[in-house]
């Protein structure tokens, strides 16, 4: 009998997460499983309160047969991966030129005051975190922000209040 040690991957993640990652894998040529790393990291992050631990990155590496360092490289390069815990609602405010000239600073200040946190911080109850982001491609609705996967445009402090109150 020839033994080839195929690492057992069923111990990695839940069946649902594996299925989602597998959907990403299926998009690419079979010998390019690595292409699924970005999708996989996002799936895993979404299922881990919005952030990636080293252990999770290692698991993604194992699942995709990649060296761990190659996964760290990807996870640290793209700004949407979080390597520290974030709030349940990650508020990303754009401060690039079009938003800036439409008073994104007022929006930022308002949120900072309201939640008592600055960029890169999480509220004590863990509900919100605040992040400064670069142009999100919605300058027509400046000033704008993204919370979770949702865009919110044409913001005023009042609109921000309403949005935040509407969140669980």
């Amino acid at each position: 009998m020839t033994t080839t040690i195929e690492k057992d991957k069923t111990e990695l993640f839940t069946a649902e997460i594996r299925a989602e990652i597998d959907r990403w894998i299926a998009k690419y040529p079979t010998e390019w499983k690595q292409s699924a790393v970005m999708g996989a990291l996002m799936v895993v992050q979404d299922n881990n309160d919005g952030w990636l631990s080293t252990q999770l990155m290692d698991q993604v590496a194992a699942y995709l047969d990649m060296p761990s360092i190659a996964v760290y490289e990807v996870a640290t390069f793209y700004s949407m991966y979080e390597l520290k815990p974030v709030g349940k609602h990650k508020i990303c405010v754009c401060t690039n030129v079009s938003c800036m000239t439409n008073k994104s600073d007022v929006i930022v200040e308002h949120i900072e005051k309201k939640l008592g946190i600055g960029f890169g911080q999480v509220t004590e109850d863990g509900r919100f975190s605040l992040k400064e982001v670069e142009c999100l491609g919605a300058c027509g609705g400046a000033p704008m922000m993204q919370i979770g996967k949702q865009y919110y445009e044409n913001l005023t402090p009042e609109i921000v209040d309403a949005i935040l109150e509407g969140l669980e």
Binding site: P67, I69, A70, Y72, E73, T76, F77
Partner: peptide
Amino acid sequence: GIREMGSTGR
């Protein structure tokens, strides 16, 4: 033949 060093961050 083993990727141990990498360049992380941006």
